[in-house]
Design a protein around this nucleic acid. Structure first.
Lengths: 123, 123
DNA sequence: ATGACTATTTATAACGC
DNA sequence: TGCGTTATAAATAGTCA
């Protein structure tokens, strides 16, 4: 994104990819930290590098915080279940549906498409 | 960070903080997406805004992926986490396996919820 | 508050060692 | 393979519509 505008596609050259990974990972975690502090909100990020040498997973703020935060979110719908069964039923059906789609994509090994779709949901 | 260099401290002004939150959250999720695609690595981010209006947690790529990724790291023995890594193929296989287990649990939960609703209709 | 618009600060791709 | 440096691309704080 500097000297030259780059497309968001997998970097095939090992050296370049590892270098980009290291740089961007660092900045990403910094951004998560800044957002968390500036806005006083819980946030976490996890990045791993399977298949790479020296693949320490990077987790911010910590694996415990991350696990805790995500676990809480995951359990939220469950706690609402007792009070709103109809909503919950709908929720579960949707989640199962989504998981099935996800499963299909994973089996095809099409993670990029999945990532794009996920991003579109967020933007 | 533009017009004026800002310190990384909690933004007390509600309007400013919410605006900053919205802008930065969007960019952050984009960064996670880019890193994931550029380097072909699993990554996730979670951001929430408790106490704010419209505080849907933002999770990328999805809560299941995030939970999966973090759970996997948590469950890994420290030695495996530090020294070695799964190659991409084994990684994907494991992910699929885990998703299938999750799918089974969800379906079970869904059946139970459906049964509950059906029961309520009779009472 | 929602979106567009800069002036600046940051992030970073390509180099250089 | 790793670090600095530098020229660009991106992000973004403040502002106005």
């Amino acid at each position: 994104m500097a000297r030259k505008k780059t497309k968001v596609v997998y970097i095939t050259d090992d050296v370049t990819r590892r270098r980009t990974f290291a740089k961007r990972k660092r900045c990403l975690l910094k951004k998560v930290y800044e957002l968390s502090v500036l806005c006083g909100v819980p946030a976490c990020a996890v990045v791993t590098a399977p298949g790479e040498p020296n693949n320490q997973p990077e987790i911010w703020p910590s694996i415990f915080d991350a696990d805790n935060l995500i676990g809480r979110l995951r359990d939220l719908p469950a706690s609402a279940r007792d009070k709103h069964d109809l909503d919950q039923e709908r929720f579960l059906s949707k989640e199962v549906e989504r998981l099935k789609e996800q499963l299909g994509r994973l089996e095809k090994g099409n993670r990029e498409a999945e990532a794009k779709v996920a991003l579109m949901r967020c933007l």
